[in-house]
Design a protein around this nucleic acid. Structure first.
Length: 225
DNA sequence: GCGACAG
DNA sequence: ATCTTGTCGC
């Protein structure tokens, strides 16, 4: 798959925030997709005492959840971790991994938030707008927003609220385990995003897409030592 | 000023 | 995210 937008690299934090504010209006918050046959997971892992990192994109069959294709990229850190500017750290290597795929995914699930972000432009939105593909943001912890307690059973959820605006869902993917934070990245509504996350997480807390990508980058990092 | 803060 | 052992709980 290839980028839809060629985005300039911000010179500093202020430029990065400006770019987020400029791109945020491009995010589509409703379903805009046809058949979803292939779903991709993406992830990045960092070497302990260097600036090296590896990124992976793994394509799964949306029905069987079987791995269809994997791509791996080695890179270096180009941006520090700053809450709210996370995408500038992980987008370059993830984009490189996605461009190596022969099978263009119909949906991408990424670690981190989408609209559940101070400027409504988390990594999932950044990826979605850059490639013009449906993306779901799936975070293990929250960046912004608050929510009522989530019911104990798998599938129960609560609105993630920033003031009176719904920016995502806290979704229980597994009974007795902390909920995930699901938010819109691009071209998929929140209700559909929850459905897909549940469908992709039949057994564990995290979607199989995330597990597959995480497993790949961790193994690659060991070999790279 | 102090706390919070995706990965 | 990464560094790390044992340990509490179902």
């Amino acid at each position: 798959m290839h980028p839809y937008l060629d985005l300039p690299w911000p010179a500093d934090e202020a430029a990065a925030e400006d770019q987020q504010r400029r791109l945020a209006p491009l995010v589509e918050r409703e379903d805009r997709f046809a058949d979803i046959r292939y779903v991709a997971g993406v992830d990045v892992a960092y070497a302990a005492h260097s600036d090296r990192l590896v990124a992976a994109a793994v394509v799964l069959d949306a029905t069987s959840l079987a791995v269809v294709e994997q791509s791996l990229v080695e890179d270096v850190v180009r941006f520090p971790y700053i809450p709210g500017l996370f995408s500038f750290r992980e987008l370059p290597p993830i984009a490189a991994a996605l461009q190596r795929l022969q099978t263009p995914p119909d949906l991408i699930v990424c670690d981190g938030q989408g609209l559940a972000h101070p400027r409504r432009f988390g990594l999932a939105c950044h990826l979605g707008v850059m490639f013009d593909v449906p993306v779901i943001g799936c975070g293990k912890t929250r960046l912004v927003g608050r929510h009522a307690p989530v019911g104990p059973a798998r599938g129960e959820h609560a609105d993630l609220l920033d003031g009176d605006e719904i920016i995502g869902s806290a979704l229980r993917t597994r009974t007795g385990i902390n909920p995930l934070y699901v938010s819109v990245g691009h071209r998929i509504g929140l209700a559909s995003a929850r459905d897909w996350v549940l469908r992709l997480s039949p057994t564990y807390r995290l979607p199989e897409t995330t597990r597959a990508a995480d497993h790949l980058v961790q193994e690659a990092l060991k070999v790279a030592d």
